[in-house]
């Protein structure tokens, strides 16, 4: 009896979290008139909503923009983050303590205070409506640096010394010795960064007005709030499905990495 109740509760939970997504996908594939029903299945199958979304907004271009921006940001955060993390963990230099304190300090600043000044900086640099505006302010992350530093501190000094004796430069040590040993932390940082950037919408709304440069969540937001969807439920659900499907597919394959990354970092993406 107890077991039965336990599984009922767990299953009820699963329905609560999964059903809305199933309803969204099912609804996007139904004719407009049948969407309201709670049923997932309908006799009639229709791609009309998708056709309309693709016709009305440059969603494929937005997908590409999101890909470019998220990939560039992620590559930069991993590359520069691991460089600074390595310097903090393994190199001697004057000002190391100061730098470390500064990075910790950066993590405590609520973003509300720098948001407007950052926007003004982008305007003054003439970067509004460019990829730079979307990439530059997130190119480095204090949080990633701290994660890298912690991981690198645990790598045996003997490995690094041996490489130095062999005449490796510090950069070569980082890429050839440290990186291959650091796959878990690289995956964690890369996944969290990519996800956070893919889903970011406030910043793009601020710095991009040109439709062809909008990221996917931004374009879908404008589509929803701007009246283009004409209160057609099917259009909205199709747009939302297109927006979430890439992430859901990636999640289906790398589910454990997503969850472990989040658990090991203790932050939200």
């Amino acid at each position: 009896m107890k077991t039965f109740l336990k599984y009922t509760a767990l299953l009820a939970g699963a329905v609560v979290f999964a059903y809305p997504f199933l309803w969204m996908i099912a609804g996007s594939l139904k004719p407009e008139l049948e969407i309201e029903s709670l049923n997932l299945f309908s006799g009639k199958f229709s791609l009309q909503s998708y056709a309309q979304v693709i016709l009305k907004i440059p969603i494929a271009r937005a997908f590409l923009n999101s890909m470019i921006v998220s990939a560039a940001t992620t590559a930069s955060v991993v590359l520069f983050g691991s460089m600074v993390g390595y310097a903090l963990a393994r190199l001697r230099f004057l000002g190391k303590k100061t730098l470390y304190t500064l990075i910790l300090f950066t993590m405590t600043i609520p973003f509300q205070i720098v948001l407007i000044p950052q926007y003004i900086l982008i305007v003054k640099l003439g970067w509004t409506d460019t990829y730079m505006a979307l990439i530059a302010p997130t190119m480095m992350s204090a949080f990633a640096i701290i994660l890298f530093r912690q991981f690198f501190m645990a790598i045996p000094q003997a490995l690094i010394d041996a490489a130095r004796v062999d005449g490796c430069s510090e950069l070569m040590i980082l890429f050839r010795i440290i990186w291959p040993l650091s796959r878990p932390v690289i995956i964690t940082v890369a996944l969290l960064t990519f996800m956070a950037n893919w889903n970011e919408v406030l910043w793009p709304l601020m710095v991009v007005r040109e439709q062809s440069l909008m990221t996917m969540p931004q374009l879908v937001t404008i589509f929803t709030t701007g009246g283009q969807a004409e209160t057609q439920l099917g259009y909205l659900l199709a747009a939302a499905t297109l927006l979430s499907l890439p992430v859901i597919i990636a999640y289906a394959f790398f589910q454990r990495y997503f969850i472990e990354s989040m658990a090991s970092s203790g932050i939200k993406g």
């Binding site: 996800m195 969540p217 929803t224 993406g269």
Partner: peptide
């Protein structure tokens, strides 16, 4: 593992998509 994965699903999906969905809910 499966239950955990399902409960975690809304975390990874874009807030915009979730909001559109809840507009209907």
């Amino acid at each position: 593992g499966l239950f955990r994965a399902i409960y975690f699903l809304p975390v990874v999906v874009s807030g915009v998509a979730v909001t559109i969905l809840w507009q209907q809910i």
